[in-house]
Amino acid sequence: MSSIKIRTKRLNAQTQIRTLIQHPMEHGRDINEKTGLLIPAHYIETLTLEYNDTVVVKSKLGSGISKNPYFSFLLKGGSIGDTVTISWKDNLGNQDTKTRIID
């Protein structure tokens, strides 16, 4: 299952894009209570939002973003059938991407 959920909502001449990503966003300073060891840092470094295959938001994130990050963006325009793609990449090289058609 994809780690990304995308919801789109058409407003007056705008489209709201909300996304929820499943990710631990560990900052590398917490200690695992069972083992007493540091939990290694594991967080999303880049997040990209594409609208009809054009990059509209490029973001660079740090570990200061909460676990299971939520973002919302507001797009100018947007009509039924347009595509919205969100992709992320974390510091361990994992990545995921998901496309949603605006309805």
Partner: peptide, 24 residues
């Protein structure tokens, strides 16, 4: 914060200046 910078968003003109996120 131990890492004061939380996020940098680079926006194209296609995006309104409205952004939500959840931070630590």
């Amino acid at each position: 914060n131990p890492v004061p910078i939380v996020a940098v968003f680079e926006l194209s003109p296609q995006i309104e200046t409205v952004i939500s996120a959840r931070i630590k």
